[in-house]
């Protein structure tokens, strides 16, 4: 049952990432692309968590946690760039 659920979830998140990529590529505005990239990060975290459940290994959850903690920093940097140009001022 779990195996079946996992497969469906992985497939759904994979489709989500493909859709994110579409938005990143098409835009049309820069904030669209940045938001799409950030969503891509979120979906990737979900994928890693699913790997963890699948393989039954604790380290994956840690990795997911850390990506969640740090992954948004690059989004922040790009947003700050759009806002002010200079990200460290």
């Amino acid at each position: 049952m779990l195996d079946f659920a996992l497969k469906i979830s992985v497939a759904l998140f994979a489709i989500a990432i493909v859709l994110n990529l579409y938005r990143v590529a098409v835009g049309p505005s820069l904030p669209d692309r940045i938001l799409a990239l950030d969503t891509m990060y979120v979906n990737s975290i979900a994928l890693i968590v699913l790997f963890g459940i699948w393989l039954g290994h604790r380290t994956y959850f840690e990795a997911a946690l850390l990506i969640a903690m740090l992954g948004f920093v690059s989004t922040v940097a790009v947003c700050k760039y759009l806002l002010r140009g200079d990200i460290i001022e």
Binding site: E62, A63, L66, I67, L70, G71, V73, S74, I87
Partner: peptide, 16 residues
Amino acid sequence: PDLALTQLAVEVVTVI
């Protein structure tokens, strides 16, 4: 997973 983490951290620093 540790390589994934390192890759991500390097990615962040590179983007900044």
